[in-house]
Amino acid sequence: MLLAKLKAAAVAASVALAALTAAEASAADKIKVASVYTVPIEQQWVSRIHIALDAAAKRGDIDYEWSESVSNADYERVMREYAEKGVDMVVGEAFAVEQAARRVARDYPETAFLMGSSFKPQAPNFSVFDNYIQEPAYLTGMIAGGMTKSNVIGVVGGFPIPEVNRLMNAFMAGALEVNPDVKFMVSFIGSWFDPPKAKEAAFAMIERKADVLYAERFGVSDAAKERGVLAIGNVIDTQAQYPDTVVASALWHMEPTIDAAIAAVKAKSFKAEDYGHYSNMKPGGASLAPYGTFEDKIPAELKAKVEAKKAAILDGSFTVEVNDAEPKPTM
């Protein structure tokens, strides 16, 4: 009897030790990631990064912390604080703070930096990414071109920088494919997060007969809803908030980008690379949102054209042009 108890105790201790060892190994396998955002995490662009990193944290791959609404003047200081704390990777958007972000990366060569940027990687540790979602943007343009009745489409963006320009240009090209008669109004509000200003720009376009609006920024869909016209979403799907307004959206999924970077850091193989290709449709970095409430409102013939184009993009027989030039109005 005593021998059996001793054997049982030994087995229990062995199981507990194994569990403890596994837990320690799992903890050791985690990396520390910090993000620095210049806007609130609710803003559509950074929300995609935050969601992907939060998912990695929840499955136990990383320890994750972040700072939001960091001013450009404070960005370098916050980056340095995280690097000094010994995080393994810093993620953020360097568009307005390129020099500062790259300076920090040079000072901490052992830290991985994965930054949204319009420019090239910087050896040895500064990798870049971008929302190369021009493919679904083209598809949403096709839908817009087929749904407009006035043949006037309004396009409202933040700043005329490459990552915005390429989406607008792809959207406009898609609209022209199905409707060569369509005309465009283009406006930039000079901000990444100013819904009232975007709303006013959209109102001005509606006054000039635009009946479909490309909502690159928050606020545009609110104007469309108030005036009873259609909107095309960007980066996230807001149809649930605008069920009678947002007819289609080009979605960005940061998971492939984030997961690839985490794997590289864990393997100690992280280097200066361009992660932009992970945002294409084929690797799962972008998609066309489900039609949802507009499933039966979009003509079947138009949906068939969109599906055919999507298939051509995925099999490589059609390539959406990456045009980073500032889009121009045609009316």
Rank of each mutant, 00 (worst) to 15 (best):
R48N: 11
I49H: 02
S69G: 07
A52D: 06
D29Y: 13
S67W: 04
I51Q: 06
H50Q: 09
V33F: 00
S69T: 07
A27W: 09
E68R: 03
V11T: 10
A8T: 07
W66F: 11
R59D: 12
P40F: 03
K7A: 09
A73I: 07
A73N: 11
N72K: 09
S14M: 15
Y37L: 07
A13G: 15
A18K: 14
S26G: 06
V15T: 12
A34N: 01
K58I: 05
S47I: 04
A22I: 10
A22K: 08
A52F: 04
K32W: 06
A13W: 12
A19G: 13
A13D: 15
T21W: 12
G60Y: 14
T21K: 14
E68C: 04
D63R: 06
H50I: 02
A27P: 09
D54R: 02
A19W: 08
D63I: 10
S69L: 07
E68Y: 00
G60S: 13
V46A: 02
K7P: 05
A52G: 08
S35V: 04
A57L: 07
N72Q: 14
I49G: 01
V33A: 03
Y64N: 02
I31G: 02
K30R: 15
I62T: 00
A22H: 11
A12W: 08
A23P: 05
P40T: 08
N72I: 10
I51L: 08
